[in-house]
Write a protein that binds this DNA or RNA. Structure first.
Lengths: 188, 188
DNA sequence: ACCTGAACACCGTTCAAGT
DNA sequence: ACCTGAACACCGTTCAAGT
């Protein structure tokens, strides 16, 4: 609140004439950010790809503002923009032929995934700020796993490099694949 | 740090003789908590159920300590207990016949889900502390969606009560179903 | 109705000083 | 080697006082 106020050229106390607390400001910020999320015109033949595109867009909108993902977890989004996105997501899932029940759950599950991934990115970025040493940390972690006692952790040893394979993007896309494949499997 | 120190009968400064900062304390706490997570003896015929059981156990361990889930997002767990759990999870997924590549990704994705769900529970609990009015809030939210203009949000309107159907447990189990079904679909 | 300065009740961390 | 009190640099929020 103090930093926001400073940015606006006032004191923190002045903000309380416009929002009742930090939570309300967060909710307003989140809905503004939701305006960036792109929802496509539903196409029944491409529902899986369209669903993925929406979740990607959600993640991008959150990742672009470090810190906001942590705020998103605490909120059920009911602003105008959030409703637009929810409606668009439901439209795509309907086009995919999913049942009402599955859609009702998926409309929570998919944003949860986007938020969790975005938060992970933001939180880890805090630790080792520069993107160049992300690879260095990843390699260091790989070495740590490789040097673990194989008799105590035989399955970690079995997995080997596969445990730390792939960058952030690949891992995100894998999760997206899993989720959409799982939704497809739940079609009646 | 101040509260922990008070609980221990000292001042906050004393803690810095044992941990270098709050993050290190969090890491230690997280590994302690991981001791509660139960991993079964792998049974190839029941890998899906066993995978679900581990994720449930992860969520339970986190939900039992409000606030710790938010901490878990920022950390790659490499303590002794976390490694035990990872090894056990990999063992079950191996028994399920998943490929190394899929296991390597799944060993991140499944804890991410447990953590995200646990955080949601903790964060929302802060808002409306008593569990009795959880149902009240849920109903209020259902009414809010029901009263939305159907011409502006036709897909939300189409979904109707399905949008807010199911309690927290059902929604968690649905996500678990989706994830495990998605993993099963990725078997080569 | 909106804004302000000052204060209140908090934080995590550091550091010189103690044993 | 371990502990301490005091201080530093922060927080979000309230409230009487101003316009």
């Amino acid at each position: 609140m103090r930093r926001v106020a400073t940015e606006l050229g006032t004191g923190a106390a002045s903000l309380y004439a416009h929002v009742s607390n930090k939570g309300e400001l967060h909710a307003l910020m989140l809905d503004r950010i939701a305006a960036d999320i792109v929802v496509p015109e539903p196409d029944p033949t491409r529902w899986a790809g369209q669903t993925k595109a929406i979740v990607r867009s959600m993640r991008d909108a959150l990742v672009a503002r470090p810190g906001i993902a942590a705020v998103a977890v605490a909120q059920i989004p009911i602003g105008a923009q959030a409703l637009r996105v929810s409606d668009g997501l439901i439209a795509v899932l309907r086009a995919g032929g999913l049942s009402k029940k599955v859609i009702g759950f998926a409309v929570d599950l998919l944003p949860l995934y986007a938020t969790a991934i975005a938060q992970e990115v933001a939180e880890r970025k805090e630790e080792h700020a520069s993107a160049d040493d992300y690879a260095a940390v990843a390699q260091q972690l790989g070495e740590f796993f490789a040097n673990l006692p194989a008799d105590r952790f035989p399955n970690i040893a079995f997995l080997g490099p596969a445990l730390s394979a792939g960058d952030r993007e690949e891992r995100f896309e894998f999760g997206l694949d899993i989720l959409v494949a799982g939704l497809a499997a739940h079609r009646d």
